[in-house]
Design a protein around this nucleic acid. Sequence first.
DNA 1: CTTAAACGGACAGACCTTGTCCGCTTGACC
DNA 2: GGTCAAGCGGACAAGGTCTGTCCGTTTAAG
Lengths: 213, 213
Amino acid sequence: MNAPPNAPSPAQRDSTVERLLADASGRLPRADARRNVERLVAAARTAVAEVGVGVSAHEIARRAGVGVGTFYRRIPSLEVLLEALLDELLGEIADRADDALTDPDPWHGFCGFAAAYVGLRAESCGIGEALGGACGDSLARQLADLRGRIRQLVERAQETGAMRADVAWEDVPFLLAAAATGERTLGLRAHEQQWERNLRIILDGLRAAPPAP
Amino acid sequence: MNAPPNAPSPAQRDSTVERLLADASGRLPRADARRNVERLVAAARTAVAEVGVGVSAHEIARRAGVGVGTFYRRIPSLEVLLEALLDELLGEIADRADDALTDPDPWHGFCGFAAAYVGLRAESCGIGEALGGACGDSLARQLADLRGRIRQLVERAQETGAMRADVAWEDVPFLLAAAATGERTLGLRAHEQQWERNLRIILDGLRAAPPAP
DNA sequence: CTTAAACGGACAGACCTTGTCCGCTTGACC
DNA sequence: GGTCAAGCGGACAAGGTCTGTCCGTTTAAG
């Protein structure tokens, strides 16, 4: 936590922080300014995860331990910040889908993606809302891309016979959303990482040959 | 829709309306007063289903086609009204569970209850929120009762071997909530009654013998 | 026709939101 | 260390939504 070439761990965080710090003029921001922007972006991340996309600017500033004035000095508006963060998260999910599409075993690839998707969704209240379309048109293209990838994953798994064929690919986003939502829609949490238990049942349901009516 | 002994269809509606109309004195309310209370309660029902438990008194009055003044003349507070309605709905669900417990085929009973529960939950935004504990302690006892019944249903189904034994009964409320939530958590609706499609996969997952890892 | 009950909706007051402004503080450079 | 602009915090303005009240007008009922 000292001076050296400072290594801000995740690459994405840099990108958002850097974009916000980029000044029209070439001047570098003061050290405390940079530190506070980093804190604000980090606070926004956890706040979106815990509270959702409805989180307020004051709440983010409070979590970051700075005043609202500091928030608005570098951040054009609350909306811009939230959009940037969610765009980033959606990009991560799309990358996971791409990885899964290169898996030689389609069913294995699908399960891996499903776990990543459900896990992210369960951990972050806000990403679930964004995936549900709560953020208007700004993320629409990203969402459509993601749906396309999910479709490919499902069809690949069905072609090899690993996934039952009487399921429409359109149902899969619902089922994955379903596995994640229990976490928050039921007041109490029965077990740690309930979503893993939910997903297991759902994957078994997707794999099994349909039993007699 | 005329004068005769007027038959207000569902018995529950009567109960709530009647309770609100019951005056300390024995005097009967004027005909327009009764009509408006009926309209308000009906409007509150649909509003809770469509908007959720966060619906405002003005919104309910607007839907009922009356002024807010009329709302507050007979209804002590918004909270009282919502609580009464949700209590009623939870009672209906509990009745369904009791019916299911008398089914000679435990698996059949469980599936019937599951369909009723998921259907109600999917149709009414508000009941989902109430089941998720969004209404504080006022419905806590009802919720606990319901959980107890679900536990019985699950254990009965597991004892006969119809439901796989490696599922904890605590997971089942999550899975049922999951089947219903897709409906609203994903912006678009792929099919009419998506919840039926979700539930089918989930029930298959619950029934199937767990496949090899 | 009379009259009390009921009506509608403007209104008060509390709360929460985003975003601005300005007096004080502090990092950076000489 | 001294200078000073960049940065800071949080009170504040402005606008929104909420619940619940009040009162002049309308209407059902005997």
